[in-house]
Amino acid sequence: MKLLELVKYFRDGHSFEEFCQTYSLDLQSEVIEIYMEQPLKIDNELAFFEIEKTEGNIEYEYEYKNIKYSNLFDFYYFLDAIEESKNAKNHSLSNEQLTKLLFNYAINDA
């Protein structure tokens, strides 16, 4: 899944619980983090890991696939951004615009 697809998924009204079930993520985790394949490009694939696996590291190597990932942000931040995108001020943002804003935040401000 790519960042644009993730944005669309949640803006279309899917729930976090449904997402966790689909991706076999532990809902009881302290936090689930959103990572992107390195080198960071807006169209790269995402991966989702419980913080208990990544230990909060900015970079994480998924040994099973031998792929290196960089942390973008956690799901709490992402879901807050999705909720804010639904308010009157931000409702006119397209999925593509919101994706670019999130990506730019992750690589420049995080």
Results as ranks from 00 to 15, higher is better:
M1G: 13
L3Y: 05
E5N: 14
E5T: 10
F10P: 05
R11V: 01
G13V: 08
G13L: 11
H14A: 15
H14T: 08
H14V: 05
E18C: 09
E18F: 14
F19V: 13
F19W: 13
F19S: 13
C20V: 11
C20I: 09
Q21M: 10
Q21D: 15
T22I: 15
S24I: 09
L25G: 08
L25F: 11
L25S: 10
L27S: 08
Q28H: 07
E30Q: 08
E30M: 06
I32R: 00
E33D: 09
E33I: 01
E33R: 00
E33K: 01
Y35H: 07
M36V: 08
E37A: 13
P39Y: 08
P39H: 08
P39I: 06
K41Q: 14
K41I: 03
I42M: 07
D43M: 09
N44D: 06
N44P: 04
N44R: 15
E45N: 13
L46A: 07
F48K: 10
F48A: 12
F49E: 11
F49R: 12
E50C: 15
I51N: 14
E52F: 10
K53L: 15
T54W: 01
E55S: 12
E55F: 14
E55C: 08
G56A: 12
G56P: 09
G56I: 10
N57Q: 13
E59F: 14
E59K: 12
Y60R: 05
Y60L: 05
E61L: 06
Y62S: 08
Y62M: 07
E63V: 10
E63G: 13
Y64G: 02
Y64M: 05
Y64Q: 05
Y64I: 09
Y64W: 02
N66Y: 06
N66K: 12
K68S: 11
K68G: 00
K68C: 07
S70D: 11
S70R: 11
N71L: 15
L72R: 00
D74H: 10
D74A: 04
D74G: 13
F75T: 03
F75C: 05
F75G: 01
Y77S: 07
Y77D: 04
F78C: 05
L79A: 00
L79Q: 08
L79V: 01
A81C: 14
I82Y: 05
E83C: 07
S85N: 02
S85L: 02
N87M: 02
A88S: 13
A88R: 10
A88K: 13
N90F: 12
N90E: 11
H91E: 15
S92Q: 09
L93T: 04
L93G: 02
N95Y: 13
Q97G: 01
Q97M: 10
L98T: 03
T99P: 02
L101S: 08
L101G: 02
L101D: 06
F103N: 00
F103G: 00
N104W: 02
N104T: 04
Y105G: 01
Y105A: 00
Y105N: 07
A106R: 00
I107L: 06
I107E: 02
N108S: 09
D109F: 09
A110G: 06
A110H: 07
A110D: 06
A110T: 04
